[in-house]
Design a protein around this nucleic acid. Structure first.
Length: 739
RNA sequence: GCGGGAUUAGCUCAGUUGGUACGAGCGGCGCUUUUACACAGCGAAGGUCGCAGGUUCGACCCCUGCAUCCCGCACCA
């Protein structure tokens, strides 16, 4: 119709031809970096800030739909803040994800018939690093394809040099304050991964099991039940309820069992309130070395702990029948022995929840081991004598940190109440090495200090490799690495330069927002609050926004290890365009609720992008003439304010739907139609189009930026990239996110 | 066992402080090849808002109980 129009506008909107070019335009502008925005006069140097870290994806492979959702929501927040003229920083990075990455590489090695021990620590780590680097590059590329306006100049990695300094500094401070201790305790041992894991890394699976009821010997007065007969060779007591009439008379007595399948046992009968009279036989065989609960009972009664299972889930006691054999095999052996000796009284089917390791799937074997722990209950003098637990609890309770949706606060509090000391050491190679150094056993005194070697420090926690003052003996570093969440816990400030007191740290911390999946509430959120409260004496972020899990259209979980069954966001983008995927992920997606991603929805929003394209073609074809129609302007302003309020309150699902609905069904279907037979509408149409593009931009950045670029320059003063145009409405509230 | 969430159109979901359900996407029905756009327009259909009580002038929305599904956490030996 009009030869003035750009040629591409005459064809349907083609996201493929557009998106890469537009992203490059944004990236080249430098506006992802708030410093550049200030330099170029886009934002004021003293503007309010909006800062957020990207939850660093694990360097274990590709980005999946879960990541895509995260990038979309966060990009919307960031684009909105930037358009409001805030000093906006969205800081990218990746996570070394210690166990996850190491076990992935181990699996790859297995295909070559290799084990990590064949390579040795150094060579193996080189392999892991190579793999991590490749994953990292894939992830960064994908994030760019998603249109994420991350400040790549500030990119960080949880295991890079700067973050290593932060980790060591944090460890040392905690150690010096007595919050980190080396302790011999029952830990969760992963026999497959050959490492300890924390309570949160256990996944409980319901399985069928057999409950055996038996006596240790014919003379033993009390029957007990167990699902794990093989551990019974480690029993040192039988616990009954102190008020149980049946057993009261035995309490305090000790029985010697000369032969329990080749093992000698000494069993004391004890009374403990924790035993339930009505469960099973009302008596509990106590295995202090291989059960968390039993260990606690043993502690109360000062019982001996006898380890009978080793790190490979093999028996360490008994004769050839059980010694060195696997626990599963020995279970059968013991049961048969009980049968042969007429000691087995009952055998019944039950279901039980078996603890398995999140990453390797192995059944957890509780074992006593010497490990490093963080004490969550110790009072900290420099923090008004509060414990880490209290430091985690308070900011949420007092509303300094807001959680959206709110009901996750309860989940958070509940977790803290049940929290035990955090085991932070791992017997794996990939990760931050524990900064603890041990003095060689034999001293080689320095000249003149021959009589002072008793002053040599045997254990030193240090950022640098220590040198002994009195002798020439070397220090060897602890072999273990740290739980990956230790370094993740520092993320909001380690990325801003801490422990250095940088300008970034002053400007952007506490961060404004932390957006992530609710599955990370304990692993990550709680640990960040702990670390920030303790190390910086401030909260890590003011708001938490939890998104739901992404599921397939039939409700299957997509984010974790579904492999090729999961929808690849990049394929969807190639088919329908980035803007369409973004809209499908946002409209109707309330915080915290799972999102069923349906390709049909995406197709619908692709049509909308095209609709917007055609609206623009029409408007650009008319004269910008006449006065602004007051009624339409009022209507528009009222909608704009409403949408702005939604943005401020993080109701993106509503804001997106409202602007969508207005543009299509009000502006296109009614206003434009009416304008066709009414003169002097041009100026109004331009006004609505330009402002609609602004309001749509956080949601559909590509198509809006592309159209923006085609709008006639003379119609606007100082036309910039739409990405940094001013949002046309003032904040609806004084402070963001207040209710 | 403790805690949380869900239950609204055929399907997937919105519905912000209680005021006749504004609804969206997809699907289905009828009409329209003319219009910036058939990746479209117009029109109509479709809901006793899980069930039972209660509060209220008025409830999808608040309270109580129940049912079904989902998700955390804990766990019995």
């Amino acid at each position: 119709m009009d030869e003035k129009l750009p040629e591409k506008l005459l064809r349907p909107y083609n996201p493929k031809e557009t998106e890469e070019r537009i992203y490059k335009l944004w990236e080249d502008s430098g506006f992802f970096n708030p410093d550049v925005c200030i330099e170029k006069g886009i934002i004021k140097a003293d503007a309010e800030h909006f800062s957020m870290v990207l939850p660093p994806p694990n360097v274990t492979g590709n980005l999946h739909t879960g990541h895509a959702l995260m990038l979309v929501i966060e990009d919307i927040m960031v684009r909105y803040a930037r358009m409001q003229g805030k000093k906006t920083l969205w800081l990218p990075g990746t996570d070394h994800a210690a166990i996850a990455t190491q076990s992935k590489v181990e699996k790859l090695l297995e295909k070559e018939g290799l084990k990590k021990k064949d390579l040795g620590r150094e060579e193996f780590l080189k392999r892991v690093e190579k793999f991590a680097k490749e994953s990292h590059d894939t992830i960064v590329n994908q994030a760019k394809k998603m249109g994420a306006t991350l400040d790549w100049s500030r990119e960080a990695f949880t295991l890079d040099e700067a973050r290593n300094v932060a980790v060591k500094t944090a460890f040392k401070k905690m150690y010096d304050d007595g919050l980190i201790y080396h302790g011999h305790r029952i830990v969760n041992w992963d026999p497959k991964g050959q490492t300890v894991i924390s309570d949160d890394e256990i996944v409980y699976e319901e399985r069928k099991a057999k409950l055996y009821t038996f006596k240790y010997s014919v003379d033993f007065p009390i029957s007990i039940s167990t699902t794990r007969p093989e551990t019974k060779v480690g029993d040192t007591a039988v616990a009954v309820h102190p008020e149980d009439a049946r057993y009261k008379k035995y309490i305090g007595k000790t029985y010697n069992i000369e032969d329990f399948c080749g093992v000698k046992l000494e069993i004391k009968i004890i009374g403990d309130e924790s035993v339930e009279k009505d469960f099973g036989t009302g008596a509990l065989g106590v295995t202090p070395a291989h059960s968390q609960i039993d260990s606690e009972i043993a502690g109360r009664h000062k019982l001996e702990s006898k380890q009978v299972i080793n790190e490979f889930a093999k028996m360490t006691v008994g004769d050839e029948r059980i010694l060195n054999k696997k626990t599963t095999e020995v279970r059968e052996t013991i049961v048969n022995w009980l049968k042969e000796n007429n000691l087995l009284e009952k055998e019944e089917e039950t279901t039980q929840n078996v603890g398995t390791a999140e990453r390797t799937g192995a059944i957890i074997e509780p074992l006593p081991k010497l490990q490093w722990f963080i004490d969550v209950n110790k009072k900290i003098p420099s923090r008004k004598n509060k414990s880490l637990k209290e430091l985690m609890f308070e900011p949420v309770k007092e509303g300094k940190i807001k959680i959206i949706p709110e009901h996750f606060e309860k989940v958070y509090f509940n977790w803290i109440e049940n929290l035990r000391d955090w085991c932070i050491s791992r017997q794996i190679w990939y990760g931050h090495r524990i900064p603890v150094w041990y003095h060689e056993p034999i001293c080689i005194p320095k000249t003149g200090k021959e009589d002072q070697t008793d002053k040599c420090k045997k254990t030193v926690v240090s950022i640098e490799k220590p040198i002994c003052e009195y002798c020439d003996a070397k220090y060897e570093q602890d072999e273990d690495t740290l739980d990956t969440w230790f370094s993740s816990g520092l993320w909001t400030f380690s990325t801003l330069g801490w422990p250095k007191q940088t300008k970034d740290l002053k400007t952007f911390h506490p961060t404004s927002m932390l957006e992530t999946g609710h599955d990370l509430i304990f692993f990550w959120i709680a640990r960040m609050i702990l670390m920030s409260q303790y190390l910086l004496n401030e909260i890590p972020f003011e708001n938490i926004y939890f998104h739901g899990m992404v599921r397939t259209a039939d409700g299957k979980k997509m984010s974790k290890s579904l492999g090729d069954k999961a929808i690849d966001p990049l394929i969807i983008i190639a088919k329908y365009g980035n803007d369409a995927l973004r809209m499908a992920m946002i409209v109707g997606n309330t915080p915290g609720k799972d999102l069923k991603l349906d390709e049909n929805d995406v197709r619908g929003y692709k049509n909308f992008a095209n609709k917007l394209w055609n609206i623009s073609r029409y408007v650009l074809g008319v004269e910008r003439s006449g006065e602004l129609k007051k009624e339409l302007l009022d209507e528009w302003n009222s909608l704009g304010k409403d949408i702005t309020a939604d943005m401020e309150n993080l109701r993106f699902y509503l804001a997106a739907e409202k602007i969508y609905h207005y543009v299509w069904h009000r502006f296109a279907d009614e206003i434009i139609e009416k304008s066709k037979d009414t003169p002097e509408y041009g100026a109004t149409l331009y006004h609505i189009l330009e402002n609609s593009l602004k309001l749509l931009h956080p949601f559909m950045p590509f198509v809006t930026e592309e159209i923006w670029g085609m709008l006639p320059v003379e119609s606007m003063e100082n036309k910039k990239l739409l990405m940094v145009e001013k949002w046309p409405f003032e904040s609806a509230f004084g402070k963001p996110y207040d209710k």
